[in-house]
Design a protein around this nucleic acid. Structure first.
Lengths: 340, 340
DNA sequence: GCGTGACGTCGAAGCGCTTCGACGGGGGAC
DNA sequence: GTCCCCCGTCGAAGCGCTTCGACGTCACGC
């Protein structure tokens, strides 16, 4: 293994000079820097991560806690993870993957052993047991999602309430008067995961304001459940002409079910969704949707963390809510003239 | 931060004794160990990861290189990653997540900086450019998948050839005489990813041996492509009664397409698949399938790595091929009596 | 002409842990 | 009783890096 002293000797300088040339924390003459860089390349020098972490008390590693529960859409998690890794690398950091299974102990462990400098926690619940812990840790963290009491924490998420509103407003503008929300599986609500409830709030609020009839129906993540949901909606709301889907797994099955039940999309029924763009675009009838910007969320999370780690005193915003962007596709149309 | 000297003082022993009590690398009296453990708990001591890594030249971190390309089924990757993390934790290791994007440089970086002790590389291609690098690194690695020349490397995978055979044999036993394989998207073959080709080899070989008519059709990962594939198969092989699907994304759409084209599954057409069990079980017609055991693969990979890291001289097997397990579900049935 | 900084570099002191050699004491073999 | 060896513990030497204080040099201002 080639170490910093080898580089120093080869370049004819002291180890500290090599270190400063590398970190830029002190001025180094142009010519010395060049010699050092040349030696580094020639010798193939790579600083030892452990030694660096010990001496600088910075590991340059971020922890990413990924959820593994039922009711969450796997590609979203994956995409998020990829964007976190990519962005972290741009800032010269690596990413340690933790599963939620490890729970609070895992967070404490990686923080207390100084394995990581900071943490990103996904799938935050309204009253998440990890919140007090995160507040007490000596390392910064960013949450993906919003708990009931975000005080003292940094949170990033899509503005789900606004997303729910946006979908309803779009349907309202098209003349629809009776709408339904097909939501996440019941367990997501039971868990009181914040984002699911916020969609409901936005949906219901906007529908009320627009004087629309509305209902909310959680739905399991299976084609059969989608079919049952479709049947139930048509039975209970015969006048239904607009549907908002916030459940990736049943988007396609639901549309299939509606069509099998004799409803054309968008002829008889307009459908909007809150889901990743790729999903919305790849359904048999491309769906008008509010995008779930997982890549952007991951990027934001890492960048907030970097600002916190920079520790230049400038506080970062506690809440970052990405505004919903709605893309019109083939699944929505003006309501057919009533009785016509 | 509480350090090992604090623990030592509190327990009335020397730091080295604390270290040995923790690692068990030297005998420590029962009573001393108890005192040390008590002190550790009382003080909330956590060894500093960097210091430990520096002193022991072991970081207790594994690198996991995850693929991000098109044509791979995301849930499989995720499940694999989760199982790697879980198993690694059982062996007191953590997992660093790398994207394939970083390529060979990323591998070299984490290995040379001693950030990780060992590497797991997924989505290995037949002639993977990373192979020479992996051979030359001073850290052990395990590949998921089989390259053309696995010499000197440790590989783990499902026995895809046998899986292809198994599906055909199952269909043969049910009396089918004309079969087709709907495979991965063309780019997977172009990339010459080994597993896709192995399935083809197993499929074709078994069909030939059984004297069956057979064809192979790569298929894009979209419902529309599935539909086109179904139409083409029926056009080109009117006698077709058995299909093997090796493409998670089109399993359901393909069955839908066949049914829309007037073929009942399994009445007119028997379908088998090579895919994760959960997928096979959740399709509208539960599909007889050979499981893609991602969790088991992850576990095996980590355990092989641990054995290599133990360095007790015992060599580990270069190739680990998990035998296919076929589960019968509702999508296969004996061929209807010809002309009857 | 001398004080004053800023610049560029060096040396040494750690960072917190593991590990090696050493050492005292006790027990078994003879 | 003596010798040896093993058990349990200690002290000290690093692991490879960063960082702090110090120092010499040079340019500038007055």
């Amino acid at each position: 293994m080639v170490k910093i002293t080898d580089v120093a000797r080869h370049a004819g300088v002291s180890p500290s000079t090599v270190s400063y040339a590398l970190s830029g924390k002190r001025p180094i003459s142009e010519e010395t820097r060049r010699r050092v860089e040349e030696s580094i390349r020639r010798l193939g020098y790579r600083p030892h991560a452990g030694a660096r972490a010990l001496a600088s008390s910075r590991s340059n590693v971020l922890a990413l806690v990924a959820p593994l529960r039922t009711g969450i859409h796997v590609p979203v998690v994956m995409q998020f993870a990829v964007s976190v890794v990519t962005t972290a690398r741009r800032h010269d950091h690596d990413v340690l993957l933790l599963t939620q299974e490890e729970g609070e102990d895992g967070l404490r462990r990686v923080a207390d052993t100084a394995l990581v400098d900071a943490l990103i926690v996904m799938d935050v619940q309204l009253h998440d047991p990890r919140l007090p812990l995160l507040r007490s840790l000596d390392r910064p963290s960013v949450l993906i999602g919003f708990p009931a009491e975000p005080d003292g924490l940094t949170c990033v998420d899509l503005d789900f309430r606004a997303a729910g509103e946006r979908c309803v407003e779009h349907l309202a503008r098209l003349g629809h008067r009776t709408v339904a929300l097909v939501g996440s599986p019941p367990e997501v609500y039971v868990r009181r995961t914040a984002f699911a409830q916020r969609v409901v709030k936005g949906f219901t609020g906007a529908a009320d304001r627009a004087g629309m009839a509305s209902s909310v129906l959680p739905c399991e993540a299976s084609p059969a459940a989608a079919r049952r949901a479709a049947e139930r909606l048509l039975r209970e709301q015969p006048a239904l002409t607009g549907v908002v889907v916030h459940n990736e797994a049943v988007l396609e099955p639901l549309i299939v079910a509606f069509e099998e039940l004799g409803l054309r999309v968008p002829g008889d029924l307009s459908v909007t969704a809150i889901c990743p763009d790729e999903l919305a675009a790849s359904v048999r009838v491309p769906v008008t949707s509010v995008a779930l910007p997982s890549a952007e969320l991951g990027e934001r999370a890492v960048e907030l963390l970097m600002r916190k780690l920079a520790g230049d005193g400038e506080p970062v915003p506690e809440a970052t809510l990405l505004p919903p962007r709605l893309t019109e596709r083939a699944s929505t149309a003006p309501r057919a003239a009533p009785g016509g």
